[in-house]
Write a protein that binds this DNA or RNA. Structure first.
Lengths: 360, 360
DNA sequence: CTGTTAGCGCTTTCAA
DNA sequence: TTGAAAGCGCTAACAG
């Protein structure tokens, strides 16, 4: 046979002009050729697989570095059916709570070579579902979702995808103490217990008519409400008129509004338990404006310990929620799931801390 | 030839058991087979290319829908060297400013079939550079960056990538009014002019000793400072002692601290121009705590008109920045660049609005 | 420990 | 207007 014979043999090797479709980037086989090994070996070496000659590994790393090789995530995702993206869905970015959550997630994932793809649901199950439909085809390596409140279709998407998923901020219900807990991976704390703690604190301070004021009535807010209600019912102090629920988003202005409404509805109210610090801050300022002494005439408490709560007049009593830790631990747990490792505590309770300042 | 003859012909067609590497998802050829056309036609039809029989288009859409076909972004990116991701880099998420920016970017991009990939630089050029290194290989369709302050290496990465890019929040410098402006695409407003406007307002209110108090000394803050300085110099009122610059992040607590420092340094100061609303709010609360009458004894102004500024005691005078519009217009401009369209105004000035409330 | 082969699912290119 | 062929850059699967 003539060695000048046509195509079949080594199609890429002598290719100087490259294929018309080539992207121009340095590829795995470029590096392989330079080092004098196969592309597969380079692939293995660069991914840090075992069973590659350490000397080769070194040479390959050097060549890759020198040639400016950067792996192509699309090719990798297509070939391996995996990506390094982790989809993170939060309800909102305008609450520092979720920003803190995201920051710590990002830190843990990034260090492990994964990337957070952030989606915002605006507390809307339909929007969450659409985001899942949009981003699941990207084959994220894992999912980090806020809460458990998903549409049935979203649940199905999640289940069908088979992608590991950790739920953040709240804990799955444990029906019977004697019974084994639900094994759905989740990291958070008991929102209901935190609601109980704040309410008990107000009772200890001698408050009798404690109103619960909330906006943005998501599942977690309602759990706090349940905690509050339980305590008041135990004490025979519960009255439905003490429940001020506002379905739309929270804001400082809403706090002023709810304080006004509460006192109009029942002037005997002596404490306001707000579901979030931002409305509590607004209420505090409204009290200042109207000359209502806090805490003497009215105790005010918030939730989450957001920036500025310690600066208020008076500083706001609140519950510090461990969102940084929740983000970090969720990401860590997800990484374990992605790697197929056993998760020791798939239902991780990180607790909360009552921060008593001068507003109560 | 025996029709039972082996492989070469139609390798995929009769494949029931599929290849061992197949992902299980419905592919383009599945749809093609169902409709009885080639995969190429399905590809064209689904992407809405012209020159496909309208009847076929309809049949193909129906089949795709029925079979649950979802395009594979990785395969698409690999084959076309394009993705639908747009990389959005912001300094911070804990400032509502950037959250508003992101929200409106997301809305515009999502509607056009693109997705925002959010990265946070923490005002750190090295971190920005690392993010670019990490995400540029994803072949984002475009880039949306905050400001113009990039490391030299980052500049090179940007230039080499050839990916369209719009800079947000500030405007490129125009050296000579008569000269053609720099054509780097950007959407924002003149930070310096806004600084001038606030300072003039304070002068009009009869203030003489106006301090500039800032944290997080990024380029935009320094431009506001320059505006302030220019005005004071024109009036012969400039004094370096009036400049209180704090390199670390802003917070309400910092506002309290800077107010204290300013009055210690010079008790004659009669106005404080804060670079951001959060520190201004902190200062306002500190004034309240110390019984300093605002604005009688001390005028206080902020920047950005963040949530809560209208709730303060007294409500805060500030500059409303058009971040929503900046996000939307930047995204729109980027889409034009991606599509190779001509951009009418590559340097888009969206202005600002002085919001005079009772603190000045 | 290393290499070969054969795709992943899509789109570019060119021909009909 | 449609299709066939080829390949984007990488890795799974199997040999050796």
């Amino acid at each position: 046979m003539d060695s000048n014979a046509s195509p079949p043999s080594s199609p890429r090797s002598a290719a100087r002009g490259r294929s018309p479709r080539a992207s121009g980037r340095v590829t795995l086989s470029d590096v392989a050729q330079a080092v004098g090994v196969s592309a597969m070996t380079v692939s293995r070496a660069l991914r840090g697989e075992r069973r590659v000659d350490p000397l080769l590994v070194e040479k390959i790393h050097a060549a890759a570095e020198r040639m400016g090789y950067v792996p192509d995530p699309a090719a990798r995702a297509l070939a391996s059916q995996k990506s390094t993206q982790v989809l993170v869905l939060v309800p909102l970015l305008s609450n520092t709570l979720f920003v803190d959550l995201i920051e710590s997630i990002h830190k843990v994932l990034f260090a492990a070579g994964y990337h957070a793809l952030i989606g915002v649901t605006h507390y809307d199950r339909a929007e969450e579902e659409q985001l899942l439909r949009t981003y699941l085809p990207l084959r994220p390596a894992g999912l980090l979702l806020t809460g458990f409140d998903h549409s049935p279709a979203a649940r199905k998407l999640l289940a069908d995808s088979g992608i590991p998923c950790v739920h953040m901020m709240e804990l799955s219900a444990v029906d019977q103490p004697s019974q084994l807990a639900d094994q759905t991976p989740c990291v958070g704390f008991s929102q209901a217990e935190a609601g109980v703690a704040i309410t008990r604190h107000l009772l200890e301070r001698g408050r009798r008519r404690i109103a619960f004021c909330a906006g943005q009535l998501d599942a977690r807010v309602m759990q706090r409400a349940a905690g509050w209600r339980t305590v008041l019912e135990q004490q025979g102090l519960y009255d439905p008129a003490l429940e001020l629920l506002w379905p739309r988003p929270t804001s400082m202005a809403l706090g002023a509004e709810l304080l006004t409404q509460a006192l109009q509805r029942d002037p005997a109210i002596d404490a306001l338990f707000f579901c979030n610090d931002d409305i509590a801050q607004g209420a505090l300022l409204e009290a200042l404006r109207r000359g209502i002494p806090v805490p003497e005439r009215l105790a005010i408490t918030g939730f989450n310990d957001l920036p500025g709560s310690d600066q208020m007049l008076p500083p706001l009593t609140t519950v510090r929620t461990p969102r940084g830790a929740i983000g970090a631990e969720s990401a860590q747990m997800l990484l374990q799931l992605i790697r197929g490792e056993l998760v020791a505590t798939p239902r991780l309770d990180l607790g909360y801390e009552l921060v008593v300042r001068q507003s109560s």
